[in-house]
Design a protein around this nucleic acid. Structure first.
Length: 572
DNA sequence: GCCGTTTTCGGCCCGACTGTTTTCAGTCG
């Protein structure tokens, strides 16, 4: 998969050209190309075989040649020349909030500072304040920015952000001056990690709303404030931006601030071609100057002759083109989910009993729940041995006779051991309704070995689902070093299902990988991996993730009613 | 650097806030 390498190089080139002070549109061309290539649905080398690279949007002759050079040599001369001119540290400096290309260039040209550590020293020793366009405040901003950059900025889990944002919105809602209020930004698009919380309100008295916002509890620091916009940092360290618009502009602003930036940029350029201008207040016709204030986001899109696009899809990954061509996915809905196929109980490392989990699943309206405790090798999780598993199966059989309205499926989360062998023999696995296989040990093995382990699980006829296939933990652990394309190929061939693990710190497969799985004909199961009954509610994170991956109902195993599910599982 | 059924040259998305200025450039989203 060379796509990411090329995207990385182009993005790097864009950064360096920006610092160099090159034509802004040239910079943008590289940045756009990086984005497009990074989001291609297939390997660029395969695409090249089908059609010339110039047919990809944003790729012209010059970039096409550079792509071919990179594919051939691993880099391109233009990139290497730039790298000699601009030390790596300058590109890193662009990531510091409050510091942009122009100031970096000034700092580099006058003081020859080329790393973040040197920059920090220079700011502390007051060398920056004498430079043109800079002052005492600039130094303070830069020092603060460095602190944020070195901290965990941009690393708030969706689940954390959502709770905090909903709390703040609830408090703001008590203000009578506010007419309408919504969470916007990446949070509304349900991204797995968010940088900050964006809230939009409409009111005829914006100043009062801003004042009320600044007085909210947990506000630790005011980063910026104006008459319609303010930014604060909460005690938790999360940044919250509030924007206030007049009521008639609410839906344009909602669309605008939901983003993504790339989605909006494309939307505005399309609007422009149709003779409209689009901003956060209204759509207006350029010729007549007539303004239109839609009273819903749907009407906004329709006004531009584009079918409505849900927030989760607004990443400029082809959704606008798909909408215009009438091929938007009919994405999965929460109501489509009929059960959970990966949960733990107090038999291994869970907290709730089998019955409690089943009751909770029933309360969610599910038809079934599979009990998949850990297998014997996972001692830390009190993994079940053959004897205890058989006991559990008997108990579940008995429970199924007593409980109405939900079917408890027998199952196991069987460890894929370091030697590629399953932790249970086939004659045990075949007795179970659902076999979930996953890796919990030997993460550090090399790429080939880890890839082979997962493929061997796919090839086992009794394994139904590969759980958390990449093993990543957001903000804590990188994915295992695996060749996902090979695994997807094996899964497609063996009809093995891959999981979207809904736990908000996993979301594994992620949106891009799940989309790739769909493209390759691999089915997905969305499960919570819940260890207590409340955890079953994490399903919503998995569903949002699936929507971001363009998944439809038919792409997801656990949208099947019980009889069809059992048939599908036994057909493997 | 890309793009084009008004254009192969001259466009390329748009506005708020901050800080350093003395009317605006830089940065951000």
């Amino acid at each position: 998969m060379k796509n990411f390498e090329i995207a990385f190089i182009f993005s790097d080139i864009a950064d360096m050209l920006e610092i160099k002070g090159e034509n802004f549109f040239k910079v943008r061309a590289y940045r756009k190309a990086a984005h497009v290539i990074g989001n291609l649905p297939a390997d660029i080398q395969d695409i090249m075989k089908q059609a010339p690279l110039e047919e990809i949007e944003g790729i012209g002759r010059a970039l096409s040649e550079k792509i071919q050079e990179i594919l051939k040599t691993g880099t391109c001369r233009f990139y290497e020349e730039l790298k000699k001119e601009f030390p790596r540290g300058l590109v890193e400096m662009l990531r510091i909030p409050g510091l942009g290309a122009k100031k970096i260039k000034v700092i580099y040209d006058t003081l020859r500072i080329s790393s973040i550590d040197e920059l920090e020293q220079a700011a502390k020793s007051h060398q920056l304040r004498v430079l043109p366009g800079m002052g005492v405040k600039t130094e303070e901003t830069i020092l603060k920015g460095i602190k944020m950059f070195k901290g965990e900025a941009g690393k708030t889990l969706l689940s954390t952000g959502l709770v905090v944002a909903e709390d703040m919105v609830a408090m703001l809602k008590t203000m009578t001056e506010i007419q309408n209020i919504e969470i916007t930004g990446s949070l509304r698009r349900r991204k797995e990690l968010i940088g900050d919380i964006d809230i939009l309100a409409s009111s005829d008295q914006p100043e009062d709303v801003i004042q009320g916002f600044l007085r909210l509890p947990r506000v630790n620091e005011v980063l910026a404030k104006g008459s319609t916009k303010a930014s604060v940092r909460l005690d938790l360290g999360i940044q919250v931006d509030l924007r206030v618009v007049e009521p008639r502009s609410f839906h344009c602003a909602l669309q605008y601030f939901t983003g993504s930036k790339d989605h909006n940029t494309k939307l505005r350029s399309i609007a422009r071609k149709k003779g409209f201008k689009l901003n956060e207040y209204c759509i207006y016709e350029e010729q007549s100057g007539k303004a239109f204030y839609p009273d819903s986001e749907k009407k906004l899109y329709h006004y531009l002759e584009i079918p409505y696009i849900i927030p989760e899809l607004r990443e400029d990954r082809g959704e606008i083109e798909a909408a215009m061509e009438g091929r938007l996915p009919r994405v999965l809905e929460w109501e489509d989910i009929r059960g959970d196929l990966h949960v733990h109980t107090d038999w291994s490392d869970g907290i709730s009993s089998i019955e409690a989990m089943a009751d909770a699943a029933k309360a969610l309206g599910y038809e079934y729940i599979a009990i998949t405790d850990h297998s014997k090798s996972l001692k830390v999780a009190r993994g079940l041995d053959e004897k205890r598993l058989k006991e559990q199966i008997d108990i579940i059989k008995k429970l199924n006779k007593e409980i109405e309205g939900i079917r408890i499926l027998t199952g196991i989360e069987v460890d894929i051991l370091s030697n590629e062998i399953m932790d249970f023999d086939d004659d045990i696995l075949k007795e179970l309704d659902v076999v979930v296989a996953s890796i919990h040990t030997g993460f550090k093995q090399d790429r080939d070995k880890l890839t082979r382990r997962i493929i061997s699980a796919c090839e086992n006829p009794h394994v139904d689902i590969i759980a958390h296939p990449t093993g990543r933990m957001l903000g804590k652990r990188d994915p295992y070093d695996i060749d996902l394309d090979l695994i997807l190929k094996a899964a497609a061939e063996t009809h093995t299902i891959l999981e979207i693990n809904s736990s908000p710190d996993r979301l594994d497969l992620n949106d891009i990988m799940a989309n790739r799985a769909k493209e390759m004909g691999v089915k997905i199961s969305i499960d919570t991996d819940a260890h207590e009954k409340e955890g079953l509610k994490d399903m919503r994170y998995g569903v949002w993730n699936a929507r971001r991956a363009w998944l439809e109902k038919d792409d997801v195993l656990n949208t099947l009613p019980l009889d069809k599910l059992l048939k599908e599982l036994s057909a493997r």
